[in-house]
Amino acid sequence: MNSIARNILAVILGLFVGSAVNMAIIMVSSSVIPPPDGADLKTVEGLKAAMPLMEPKHFVMPFLAHALGTLVGALTAAKIAASYKMRFAIAIGFCFMVGGIMNILMLPSPLWFTIVDLGLAYVPMAYFAGKLGIGKNN
């Protein structure tokens, strides 16, 4: 396969797979850590209304979704890319970080979560995935 086509495929699949992992974790999160009583987490308005009721434990699964989604997406891109594996992994991390920033702007969260999420879930996970994707032989 042409290296340019392979690199484009790496980005597309990295974004797709990472988003799927993120969404899967978010979908099961309420069964792992139940939401506060009376919270409706199915709409943005419900999430905004429930935010004051949230405890730190309620932010564990969203953080894991963001971090693991980025990690898996960036690793996918790094493994598939024909060249510049680390660059493609970091690019996936920045794409997910833009999504995280948009999420924070739409759905305000506690400052501590914003700092932890933006600081640890995206670029560091993408860098780690890039290192894993490159492996020892390159």
Rank of each mutant, 00 (worst) to 15 (best):
N2M: 06
N2C: 05
S3K: 14
S3R: 14
I4R: 15
A5S: 14
A5G: 15
A5F: 15
N7A: 03
N7Q: 04
N7W: 03
L9R: 02
L9T: 12
A10W: 06
A10S: 15
I12F: 06
I12R: 06
L13F: 11
G14W: 02
G14S: 07
G14L: 07
G14N: 04
F16L: 15
F16P: 00
F16R: 03
V17D: 05
V21G: 05
N22V: 00
N22W: 14
N22D: 12
M23K: 08
M23L: 10
A24E: 06
I25S: 05
I26E: 14
I26T: 07
S30A: 14
S31I: 02
S31W: 07
V32C: 09
I33A: 03
I33W: 00
P34I: 11
P35I: 06
D37T: 14
G38V: 13
G38P: 00
G38H: 08
A39Y: 04
K42F: 06
K42S: 15
T43V: 10
V44T: 08
V44G: 01
L47R: 14
K48Y: 13
K48E: 13
K48I: 15
A49G: 05
A50S: 15
A50T: 09
M51H: 05
M51E: 06
L53Q: 08
L53R: 05
M54R: 12
M54V: 11
E55V: 08
E55D: 09
P56C: 12
P56G: 09
K57Y: 02
V60L: 10
M61E: 02
M61K: 03
P62Y: 05
F63M: 14
F63E: 05
L64M: 14
L64W: 10
L64A: 11
A65F: 10
A65E: 02
A65G: 00
H66A: 11
H66K: 08
A67K: 02
L68E: 03
G69C: 07
L71E: 06
L71R: 01
V72H: 03
G73Q: 12
A77P: 01
A77D: 03
A77E: 04
A78T: 01
K79M: 05
I80Y: 04
S83G: 00
A91Q: 09
I92G: 07
F94I: 12
F94L: 15
C95W: 15
V98Y: 11
G99T: 00
G99S: 05
G100L: 05
I101W: 13
I101L: 15
N103I: 02
I104D: 12
L107R: 11
S109H: 13
P110V: 14
P110D: 12
L111W: 11
W112Q: 10
W112M: 13
I115L: 15
D117Y: 03
D117H: 04
G119V: 08
L120I: 01
L120A: 10
L120T: 13
A121T: 07
Y122T: 10
Y122N: 09
Y122H: 13
M125S: 03
A126D: 08
Y127A: 10
Y127I: 12
F128M: 13
F128Q: 02
A129E: 07
A129F: 04
A129H: 02
G130I: 00
G130V: 01
G130F: 01
K131D: 01
K131T: 00
L132R: 01
L132E: 01
I134W: 00
I134M: 01
G135H: 06
K136M: 08
K136L: 09
K136D: 07
N137Q: 14
N138S: 12
